[in-house]
Each structure stands twice: as C-alpha cells, then as structure tokens.
C-alpha cells in the first residue's frame, strides 16, 4: 500500500517538476510547480513527517506559488519566442548545474544513509524539530533569514521612487 503511494507521489513530484521546465505557458508552469509541491508533501506524509508536509503546503504551496501566480497574472506575460542563450546565461546555468551535481554526488558518497529498511527511530515530535532549529541549526536559519532580509531591502530600494529620481523628472 505505502509503496504504491510512494511511487504515485514520487511520479507526481518528478513528472510535474519536469513539466514546470517544459511548459511554455507560465501559468501552467506555476500550477505544475504547485502539483510538484503537493506530491512532495505527500511523500513527507508517507514518512509520517506531518509537520514538514503541512509547513511545506502552508509556506510554499499556500503563499509562495500563489505569489508567483499573482505576479504572472499581473504581468500578463505572453509565451515568448525562444531566444538564443547569452554566454553569461550559459555560464551561470553550467555553474548551477555543476553545483547541483556535486551536491547530489557528495550526498550519495559521503552521507551515511540507512538503506536497509526503515529506521527504527520514533517520529520526531514538534518539540524535537523546534529544538534542532533553535540549537543545532540556528546559524543556517539566521543566515537564510539575513539573505531574505537583504533581498527584501533590495526590492524596497528598487521599487521605491526616491526623491532625487522624482526631482529629475
């Protein structure tokens, strides 16, 4: 039973993730991303990680993709004609891809995965999550938080009409 659901959700996640990239229509792409996230949440539920599943739904599916769709609708983008890649784009894509491959490879070779059957650990409780988040992984959380803050400030600066720009007009 669980195996069937696993393959179902895994197929959903991967298939719709592929469709996100392949789709020319941006709204379809965003909705495929949503479907992919729902499949991922399903996988978490199969692992009894309800908290992760619902946080994923709440934050990514409920807010982030909704914002994506919101922006797509506001911009009303037409399916663009395929442009030739710029060298810089190609370089960035190559670098990103290489990083991803390296990450996966290092995970596969260096991580100690319990491949022999399900682990005998109990389902981590809410409290355990919270403790990890505020002790062991406090630094990454803070770093990500600052990254987001920086991005937000950047958006504020970019979108805010400054006085000098007003006067120049």
């Amino acid at each position: 039973m669980a195996a069937i659901f696993f393959y179902l959700f895994a197929g959903l996640t991967l298939g719709s993730a592929a469709l996100v990239v392949a789709n020319r229509n941006t709204v379809n792409g965003a909705l495929c991303l949503l479907l992919s996230l729902v499949g991922l949440a399903g996988l978490f539920v199969l692992l009894d990680a309800y908290l992760l599943a619902f946080v994923l739904l709440l934050v990514y599916a409920g807010a982030v993709v909704a914002l994506f769709l919101f922006i797509i609708m506001l911009l009303d983008t037409q399916p663009a004609a395929r442009k030739p890649f710029k060298p810089l784009t190609l370089a960035a894509a190559g670098l990103g891809g290489a990083l991803l491959v390296m990450g996966v490879l290092s995970f596969l070779t260096r991580a100690r995965l319990a491949l022999a059957g399900p682990a005998e650990t109990a389902v981590p409780s809410l409290k355990a999550y919270a403790e990890r988040l505020f002790t062991t992984y406090l630094l990454p959380v803070q770093v990500v938080g600052f990254l987001l803050l920086g991005a937000m400030l950047g958006v504020v600066v970019l979108s805010k009409k400054l006085d000098s720009a007003e006067k120049a007009r």
């Binding site: 309800y50 908290l51 946080v55 739904l57 709440l58 599916a61 909704a66 809410l126």
Partner: peptide, 23 residues
C-alpha cells in the same frame, strides 16, 4: 497531531480555487 497547522495549510491552498476560477 499538527491540528491547527493542518487547517491553516489546507485552507491556505483555497486561494488557488479563486485564482484558477478567475484566470
């Protein structure tokens, strides 16, 4: 177990019905 979080998570998806209908 996650109670209120499940309600919020599923309810937050409700916005897609509106977005899909409108779009």
């Amino acid at each position: 177990d996650v109670g209120i979080l499940a309600v919020f998570a599923v309810a937050s998806l409700g916005v897609y019905a509106l977005i899909l209908a409108g779009w």
